[in-house]
Design a protein around this nucleic acid. Structure first.
Ligand code: NAD
Ligand code: NAD
Lengths: 251, 251
DNA sequence: CCATCTTTGTGCACGCGTTCACAAAGACAT
DNA sequence: ATGTCTTTGTGAACGCGTGCACAAAGATGG
């Protein structure tokens, strides 16, 4: 019997829930602010308030990293900053490439918050020959032809896609082919990638649509059902799943 | 305005789970693409593949909207586009203001995908007097002094914050005070808002940190399992130029 | 050294979201 | 009409995430 090795895959071995991972950067930001004010320790209650989460949730999150708190006192700010940074992999340098230097790509390149946490813009890549060599945010834009070489020369494993939607999958494939295993996608497309590659997407349009949904719901509540644009939607009756078929199908 | 009806049982009254709402825009996008190709009907299996989700999940999502499919055939594309659009509130016009016309704000203003789905940039607002009157994306930037008037004159209920983090809460308060009830926040800050106001955040830094976490985990797995759990400086940094991390264990 | 007080760490219950699996519904052919 | 075949709609089981509530740990003061 191997020592300590469980039968479970790595996801369980490291044991940090995805939801917790997503909150760690939030805690880190709050802790960094405290650190800059030279606050030595902080209670779960205070830190939770600053991060906008439940204090029990925060304590449970930290418990996954180990027990770094002191009962009756709280958590040591500096120590926690270090532990979370290490857990997130921010103690090392992450070269990043941005592909598609248009409106958004240029804004990202100019974004100061990038470098603040170990992320370094290693290269800017665009398909437009007219942009080649032109500096954006002090970094010369390089042509897509050299994408593979750029990735390999710089040891890049994280890529940001800010091209039009139509080019995103193709760019993605090339990034992955060159060795990139993490992608942040700003293009409004579903990217398909092989196992082992992580994709996260930032989709402005989706966010707005979600807001619009709730906005409409709020407005609808105030004016109590005034719509009736086309036959009222069948209230999803919990007990009568079928039966009503009045909704007309427009051929 | 909200007349004391701050209670919030509506989430269940309308009955559409939040997770489903978040996927509707995804389905809508895939359906729109099918519609443009004049595809008349689509099965849950096909549509699910296009949207990158499980087909059973998709069917259950649609079941919350009512039963719009035909067994043995699938879903009518045009009809579904309409139903989802209506459910999301996209059949009406949503005037939006963007506050903070810097790198990111300007990119957002120039973003074509904005207008495509009922969202209309009603105004651009910035605190910099030098920007006042200057057109960005064909729209003249207005000064923050007039924020309240702009919101009210245009009937704006959705606001986008793209100011520096330090100004975000203040801007948020003014937006809410003027009647905005949905906010999309790009600044890396936790915004606090009264009940009845929805906030969604887009945080590039957090996304990158989450990717870095998984990236580090992948790298750690490759180099075969032992890894100093506590203390000790991270060692899997072949070319790490950081080399600092002087933080030491307290106590 | 003991009492008290603060705050952590976590057991537990609950609700939401996901997925499987299948009966029923309907299209289509004969 | 009847049978076959496709695909929906959903019951049910399961796992994850959340938050309450509390015992234990440790600091602090006498
Ligand atoms: N601008 C925004 O605020 C915003 C917001 C949300 C999403 N988006 C999305 O981000 C993407 C970029 O938006 P944008 O406004 O910057 O567009 P843009 O047209 O200004 O820029 C796109 C850039 O990508 C380059 N490009 C095109 N094909 C390429 C390829 N195959 N390889 C490399 N580069 C290529 C173009 O040369 C151009 O410079 C789009 O998919 C858009 O939908 C933009
Ligand atoms: N640029 C990016 O790619 C990017 C990415 C992620 C997040 N962000 C965040 O988005 C925000 C904006 O980033 P940016 O790069 O555009 O910054 P920026 O400095 O280029 O622009 C900020 C703009 O906000 C204006 N402003 C400042 N205070 C204001 C106030 N009180 N009211 C109205 N306007 C005000 C400034 O005049 C300026 O025009 C920041 O919080 C940043 O952290 C930016």
């Amino acid at each position: 019997m191997a020592t300590g090795r469980t039968h479970r895959p790595a996801t369980r071995s490291r044991g940090i829930p995805e939801a917790t991972v997503a909150r760690l950067p939030l805690y880190l930001r709050a802790l960094t602010a405290l650190s800059e004010r030279s606050v030595p320790t902080v209670s779960s209650e205070e830190l939770a308030a600053a991060a906008g989460v439940n204090s029990a949730k925060l304590r449970k999150d930290f418990s996954y990293l180990g027990s770094y708190g002191t009962r009756g006192v709280g958590y040591d700010v500096e120590y926690l900053v270090y532990q979370i940074s290490r857990e997130l992999g921010l103690t090392q340098d992450w070269p990043v490439v941005i592909v598609g230097i248009g409106n958004l790509g240029a804004a990202l390149a100019n974004y100061g918050g990038f470098a603040s946490r170990g992320f370094r813009v290693a290269a800017l890549i665009d398909a437009d020959p007219a942009m080649a060599g032109k500096p954006v945010a002090g970094i010369p834009v390089q042509h897509t032809d050299d994408l593979e070489k750029i990735i390999k020369d710089n040891g890049v494993s994280i890529g940001v896609i800010a091209t039009p939607a139509g080019a995103a999958q193709q760019v993605c494939d090339r990034l992955v082919g060159a060795g990139v295993t993490s992608i942040l996608n700003f293009a409004p497309t579903v990217l398909s990638v092989p196992d082992g590659v992580d994709v996260r997407k930032v989709d402005l349009s989706i966010e707005l649509q979600i807001l619009a949904f709730h906005e409409q719901r709020k407005a609808g509540e105030e004016t109590a059902g005034e719509e009736a644009v086309t036959a009222s939607v069948p209230k999803n009756t919990p007990k009568g799943p079928d039966g009503d078929v009045p909704v007309v199908m427009p051929a």
